[in-house]
């Protein structure tokens, strides 16, 4: 089965779309997206804590994308821009969905998959410990990423990270991550 970006993108345009983008993920793009989504959220009748969560998770999702995109080899240059990624922010029924997609080298999949599975298998308390451990013991990478993004997203949303790796060619796959934020924020269980 061939992976078609158009199909993938179309699949994600359900519900009430606040913003959809496919193309190069740059700092300017991130700034634009944050401004746009923040002003759109103001029109939604949500408690400010829900808006804040959506904004916070969006920041992390975008910056994760920014820090981890792998560029495809030159022969795909006419097909995809450099630093190609996809972002869709939507609201369907009672939940917000932030979908991100980017190319990833196949040799990185095992590590990322294990990281996500570990996060998904952790309790709220476990995520808190994981967050604090990474915060206190891991150095920031040169790019400024700290390995905390996904843990933070899982902690703030209280939901499992939904993901898939869609094979593209021998070297690359397309990594899709769907993050959900419930309108009714789950009660904190301490």
């Amino acid at each position: 089965m061939n992976f078609r970006i158009e199909d993938y993108y179309a699949d994600r345009l359900g519900g009430d779309v606040l913003l959809a983008y496919k193309g190069s993920i740059t700092t300017d793009l991130i700034n634009n997206v944050l401004d746009t989504v923040e002003s759109k959220l103001q029109d939604f009748h949500e408690p400010s804590k829900v808006k804040k969560k959506v904004y916070n998770v969006l920041v992390e999702s975008l910056q994760n994308l920014f820090h981890h995109i792998d560029d495809l080899p030159d022969e795909y240059k006419d097909q995809f821009e450099s630093r190609f990624g996809i972002l869709v922010v939507s609201k369907d029924k009672n939940r917000y969905r932030i979908s991100t997609g980017n190319f990833i080298r196949n040799d990185k999949i095992a590590y990322l998959k294990e990281k996500i599975e570990t996060i998904n298998a952790s309790s709220k308390e476990g995520l808190k410990d994981m967050y604090k451990h990474i915060l206190n013991h891991q150095k920031l990478s040169e790019k400024g990423g700290g390995g905390l993004g996904l843990v933070d997203i899982a902690r703030k949303t209280g939901n499992k990270l939904q993901y898939s790796f869609i094979p593209f060619n021998e070297e690359y796959s397309f990594f899709n991550l769907d993050v959900f934020i419930d309108e009714e924020v789950k009660k904190t269980v301490k």
Partner: peptide
């Protein structure tokens, strides 16, 4: 009001 995880290490 907001801080990202990249800042969280610097704040530490």
């Amino acid at each position: 009001e907001y801080f990202n995880t990249s800042s969280s290490k610097c704040i530490l």
